[in-house]
Computed example of a mutant assay.
Amino acid sequence: MSIPNPLFLIILFTFFIFSQSAYSQNQSTSSSTSKFPWSPPDNRFLISNNSIFAAGFLLAGNTTNRYIFSVYYHNITPTTTIWSVNDNSPVNASSSLFITTSGELRLGDIPFSGNSSSPILSLKDDGSLSFGSWSSFQYPTNTIVPNQNITGKTLSVRNGAFQFDGTSLIYNGSYDAPTSYYQSPNAFMSFDDSGTVKLQNGASFITSDFGDKTLRRLKLDDNGNLRIYGFDSGSGQWNVVWQAVPELCTIKGSCKPNYICMYGETYDTTVCDCPPGFHRVSGLDGEE
């Protein structure tokens, strides 16, 4: 076997080091940035100092050229988002995050924050994204993380069909007036790292994994249920450790008018079927 030319090895090693350096410079792995504009092709993201959270552009759904700027858990697969600025309005690759002349942070045409004299966008260890006095914790989407204040906040699913106002779960369907299908006797305030959920009037309750040192998140799911999930690092799965509505078919809007709601093969699935003697009619919301 021939021995490689030493000059060739030196050139190869130098090329490798240069390539790694160029790759690293093309990525932002700090917890803050003042480098704007910031576009999806820049391949940049922020990582909190404790390496739990990340922020940056994520592909929207199954698309290949539409992006959502989000905060999500770092190094957890599949990607688990806790906040997004444009969940309902994905942008294309040419859009950018930038600061206006008045000091406002914007994503394309989407207002991002109020004016700030500081041009620094930071990702904190608690998962909050901050820009001056503005914080993503002030404007939650569908998720609350430990030690985030819930008081006065409203969670909403992407299409707006379900909301949680801190006390009630509300259905905002197209075929009926807004209807509450769950109500807590005391409003939610926050929950901590141990799994204790604090309510108004000194009340509280604990999750089924109380005391475990793990990641948790409270989320209003797309099916209208409010759940707390705990992360099992052994299996790499998020497990339900508390839920507001155990019986999914009692959630308003689980099925459209005139359907019968039945439970699927797992606790988390439902099946909407026609009453006896009726059949499904294509293109209609109900049954005939």
Score class of each variant (00 low, 15 high):
G286P: 00
G61V: 04
K219H: 08
L107K: 02
A203W: 02
D232V: 00
F162S: 14
L9F: 01
L46W: 04
G264I: 02
L218A: 14
S30H: 08
G234D: 10
P140H: 15
N26I: 03
N239Q: 11
S184V: 04
N62W: 01
S282W: 07
E247C: 09
S28A: 15
V157D: 14
D109N: 08
N172R: 14
F278H: 09
C261Q: 02
S84I: 07
N50H: 02
S21M: 13
S31F: 05
P119F: 06
S32F: 07
N5F: 10
N92V: 01
Y139L: 11
G234Q: 08
Q200W: 00
F15T: 01
P246Q: 06
F69W: 04
Y259H: 15
S19Y: 08
N159S: 13
N142P: 09
N88K: 02
S235M: 13
F45S: 12
P40V: 11
C272H: 06
K153M: 15
K213I: 08
V271Y: 14
D232H: 03
I76G: 08
N172V: 13
S168D: 15
M1S: 12
R217T: 05
P4M: 13
T269Q: 08
P275Q: 09
I3R: 14
I206G: 11
Q27I: 14
W242K: 05
N223Q: 13
L9I: 01
D109P: 01
E287C: 06
L284S: 06
S130W: 01
G56E: 09
F205T: 04
R280N: 03
L226Q: 14
P140Q: 15
N201D: 10
S184R: 06
F13I: 06
I82A: 02
S70F: 02
G264V: 02
E265L: 05
Y259D: 14
T269N: 06
L248Y: 07
Y229R: 09
G152T: 10
S118Y: 08
S32M: 06
I110E: 01
Q20E: 13
